[in-house]
Nucleic acid binder design. Sequence first.
DNA 1: TATGAATGAGTATTCATTCAT
DNA 2: AATGAATGAATACTCATTCAT
Lengths: 212, 212, 212, 212
Amino acid sequence: MIPNSDRDDSYSNERRRHLMEIALKRFAKDGYHPTKISDIVGEAGVAQGTFYWYFKSKEAVALEIVEDGRNQLLDVIAQGYRQDSGTVQDMVQASETLLCRLFLFAEANRHLMELLLGSMAASDTIRQAIGETRIAMENAFLLNIERAIELGMLPATIDAKLRSAFLMSLIEGVISRWLFATMLPGNGTQAKTAQQLASETARFEFFGLLGI
Amino acid sequence: MIPNSDRDDSYSNERRRHLMEIALKRFAKDGYHPTKISDIVGEAGVAQGTFYWYFKSKEAVALEIVEDGRNQLLDVIAQGYRQDSGTVQDMVQASETLLCRLFLFAEANRHLMELLLGSMAASDTIRQAIGETRIAMENAFLLNIERAIELGMLPATIDAKLRSAFLMSLIEGVISRWLFATMLPGNGTQAKTAQQLASETARFEFFGLLGI
Amino acid sequence: MIPNSDRDDSYSNERRRHLMEIALKRFAKDGYHPTKISDIVGEAGVAQGTFYWYFKSKEAVALEIVEDGRNQLLDVIAQGYRQDSGTVQDMVQASETLLCRLFLFAEANRHLMELLLGSMAASDTIRQAIGETRIAMENAFLLNIERAIELGMLPATIDAKLRSAFLMSLIEGVISRWLFATMLPGNGTQAKTAQQLASETARFEFFGLLGI
Amino acid sequence: MIPNSDRDDSYSNERRRHLMEIALKRFAKDGYHPTKISDIVGEAGVAQGTFYWYFKSKEAVALEIVEDGRNQLLDVIAQGYRQDSGTVQDMVQASETLLCRLFLFAEANRHLMELLLGSMAASDTIRQAIGETRIAMENAFLLNIERAIELGMLPATIDAKLRSAFLMSLIEGVISRWLFATMLPGNGTQAKTAQQLASETARFEFFGLLGI
DNA sequence: TATGAATGAGTATTCATTCAT
DNA sequence: AATGAATGAATACTCATTCAT
């Protein structure tokens, strides 16, 4: 009963992936509860029962989507900083590079980011999975900051944890405003490129409003 | 026949307010859809029908809650900045004061903030009302920044709109992390007072990571 | 507590009658079930509870309305025929007179007739009360026909009961078409006067399609 | 995958038809509003949700029932009269035949007739659908009468529209009395056969009370 | 693998009726 | 007599999930 040919398998995987994509889009756009299984299978052009061949339940897809997303995101961040001392200018440049990579990923995965940043009011399990993803990101930034302090590139007087929270707040806010226009139309991020945003955000990150 | 005013009136209003409070709490904690009218009236100790004596529908309470909240929030911000030039130190101090007022309000209105910042996936109407509230806040900050630029207190080279987006992001992120531990446990804001947070946030706002 | 002055009493009766009139109108127009007590009191400009001071229940008003109507209708018919032999012409004339009186009454009591002829799907009790009213009418006609046969004015070969059923069918149909245009618009009764209708109906009654 | 047609298809259709039949019966007996979906599915022995697999809503079944009924009824009438002149006797005979067919249909479709003639107080949409059905019937009779006048078989002096209204009234009344004993028990139609009723009704139709 | 018919628990809302004042 | 707040049973409809083919 278990298919063993490549053909069947990849066909199967395709369908699975297709359903997940649609589910992701709907969850992001309409929210978890308002999205009906019938919407998903309707858009996919398959029967209701088919959904349950690929996924255990509605919650299960949501969970899988979030966990997939987490891995992708952490991959993007994992390539980060890796700066070995250097000038302040180098540090700002490194941060800008990371932010740019992050923004590009977000741009290419709008729905995923909408899901992760919009904290859709689903079940506790899902909420938790989303929370963990954000914590993981924040931790990545925390490590970077701590390393920078060790290297003497950032003043030792600052609270690294709090600063990483500031950073994540900044990033989450910028991405939300940039990509989900419906949420906050007419804000200052809309027409920018990922590179521009990264540059400005990095500048603010290091120098604040008064910065150069 | 007409109630001698304060007595009857306040009794009726009390019930209404009570139901709204409970609804707010549940919406914030569990989300809009998962919250059942039966939960609300159950906690309030009244009959199902009573809810509908006071409110047209579930959506109607949610909307009223959000709109009430918007007014309160904007009141808090409206008392803002009012700086008439002065030194940089004065400006930072003014910002710190505003942030502190905002954080204190958030602390006293956790559920409301959770509702407003958590973008619960409710109906479009509600989503929009929440969005408008956040836009209104961001605009208030934008005006402050523009004024500061006019007064020569902030460099004219910066993009005011973008900076107000940075600011709101910062504030939203900080409040979320500070008050909704469930969302992001163990972050750098948790054990602080409103005053401490305001001070650190203002410092970051103006000087960035490298700041004094 | 029981009022004893005429003033109060008549005031009270007026309100009662007012509520009944409104209820009759709504029952006739919208049906029993779709009519809400709140509609009735709303139109009357009194509080919800007031309705229950005057009537035991929704069904009770409906019942009272129907029974009131029955008495009025039977009064109209009771003055009927009273023909003491005479020519065929006399008999037709007498029938025409009765029909005219009936149609005039119906015209002045549209809502009541709509209620009685439309067999609104209410409770069994109400349905029965309406049925009894129609039976009472049909019996009145039966008596007339039987008397006419006894007097030799109608052929003894006919089935009196069946003929009274024909008669009532005719009358009910004519009144419905004449007064409740919404039900069957554009029929042949619409622009006629009670007198014209009575004349034509009587002619058909006695002579059929082939009649003079 | 596609059902080899007749089997599966008819199974599905059977259930649908079964639910419709039950709904028709209950609507006719108890009225539209008093009939609960739970009554229908209860009698059918299926789950509540099953009803909604086959029908969009309660109103939708009612509408479909009425429209189905209209088509059947008009089919019965459509085979009507088709008299090509002939004697008066022929004309009476033709009418009798049509009436007999109509009465037989009514006898075999009591519930449908009860629904159509009892103007159940449902939604406006349904009321209208029922009204249209009755208008369509009346129009069919109108055409017959007009043709008869053209052929010189009926006096040109009579008002054809009014006469078709008389006819429909007669027919509606007779059917109601004959089949819905609960409505008007003990009337003159009860123990007759369709043929007898048709014969007597046709006689009255053409000759009136005084007729042969 | 895939279908789609069937399920039934769950939910917002309505409305006749009651009752303290 | 009159009010209007409060009740709670009742009901149409939804939707995630199951299951026989």
